[in-house]
Amino acid sequence: MKNTPKTITMQVTRFRPGEDEAPVVQSYEVPLRKEWAVLDGLNHIKDHLDGTLSYRWSCRMGICGSCGMTVNGKPQLSCATFLTDYAPGPVRVEPLRNFPVIRDLVVDISDFMEKLPKVKPWLIHDGEPPEGEFLQTPREMDEYKKYSMCINCMLCYSACPVYALEPEFLGPAAIALGQRYNLDSRDDGAEDRRDVLASAAGVWACTFVGECSTACPKGVDPAGAIQRYKLTAAVSALKDYLLPRGARR
């Protein structure tokens, strides 16, 4: 390990509203340590080199979803991406793509926050819940489990060219979360979610690039959720067309 350089250059995209017309790249030398994530490098900059650098972070264990960034061109959680993997560097750190930049590495995700409630990501149950728990076997839970793992980190939106070109698109995470409840044995809300999920801005906007599932750090597979819902939506549309009212569902 004698030849390992002791520092690495981080090329960080800066954008200071009112000051910068367009984003500029600023380089910083940070220590290269085995344990350091890209986030540790940014914290070193913030604490010791330049207090004006802004970015979001919190749990530093890949579960809160705050610290999504574009690292060497790929959407990543900066707390779960390590500097040594980019040695000898430089490592490029940019804000997540496809979102407006508020400042430096901080992007505006209010579009997602507005879309999320539209898919009604909560349990809709006809009638009163049982006295005790709903029975749900481990097998029934497996039906939706992976879609419930979404941490809302926005990496999938950043990876999705459809979202880049068609900002109306509900997007991978929101659709996956709608599906998460549709596939839950305790839920009766699939009909309530259909108008939104099966719309032109819903699953039908997706052309299956598949990058959302590649980018997802939690194995949610939003692309799979979307393709699966397309089939569901197509079948129910067909049923609506062919069957008399009473026999639908």
Binding site: G18, G73, V101, E211, T214
Partner: peptide
Amino acid sequence: SAHQQPVSAFWWLHQWSY
């Protein structure tokens, strides 16, 4: 005054999957 990140006309060349 958020900065709108432009989408390059050649975005589809940036990645093999695209």
